[in-house]
Simulated scan of single mutants.
Amino acid sequence: MNILISGGAKNGKSDIAERIVRRMMERLHKPLYYVATMMPADEEDRERIRVHRMNRAGAGFQTLEAGTRILRVLDLPKTDP
């Protein structure tokens, strides 16, 4: 199953996606991957990233950094497509 969550910057997409994925993966017993795509441009962006990381801490997500060309994360040896 694929779910696309779209919208503008800073409107809560990450929070919605994380809640959906956690519920799905609890039932399926699959690993949780978070593809982080934000490329910080200023201190506000860096703070936003810090808060996102803090919110995910302990939730079981493995974070994969990919500011551009996000499909390349599927080729990483530590992912399970």
Rank of each mutant, 00 (worst) to 15 (best):
A57Y: 06
K13L: 11
A36T: 08
N11A: 01
A41Y: 11
A9H: 10
L64N: 11
K78I: 00
E47S: 10
K10I: 09
H52S: 11
V51L: 14
N11M: 10
M24D: 11
D42S: 10
L4D: 01
R23H: 12
R19E: 11
A17H: 06
N55L: 09
D15F: 14
H29R: 15
L28Q: 05
P77F: 02
R50F: 06
I3C: 00
K13T: 13
R23I: 10
K30N: 05
I3E: 07
V51P: 08
L76C: 10
T63G: 01
R53P: 12
I5M: 09
T37Y: 04
D45P: 00
R53A: 15
M39Y: 05
D15P: 02
R53D: 15
G7D: 01
K78P: 05
A57D: 09
R72M: 01
A66F: 03
R23S: 02
Y33P: 07
G67I: 03
G7W: 09
G67A: 04
E47W: 12
Y34E: 02
T37M: 09
R27V: 12
T68S: 06
L71T: 03
I49H: 01
M39W: 05
M39I: 12
E43G: 09
D75A: 02
I5A: 10
V21G: 00
G67E: 06
Q62A: 14
H29T: 12
R27Y: 10
I5P: 12
T63D: 03
M54R: 15
G7I: 04
E65W: 01
Q62Y: 01
M25C: 10
N11C: 04
M54E: 15
E26C: 01
E65V: 14
R46I: 09
M38Q: 10
H29F: 13
P77S: 03
P77L: 05
R72P: 04
A17Y: 01
L74E: 13
G60K: 13
G60P: 02
V35K: 08
G67V: 07
L28F: 02
G12L: 10
L71W: 04
R56W: 02
T68A: 03
I49L: 14
L32R: 03
E47M: 11
P81T: 14
L74K: 15
A9D: 08
H29C: 13
L71I: 03
R23T: 07
G58P: 04
A57K: 08
S14A: 13
T68W: 11
A41S: 11
S6G: 07
P40V: 12
G60F: 07
P40H: 14
A9C: 13
D75M: 05
K13N: 08
R22I: 03
A57F: 06
R56Q: 05
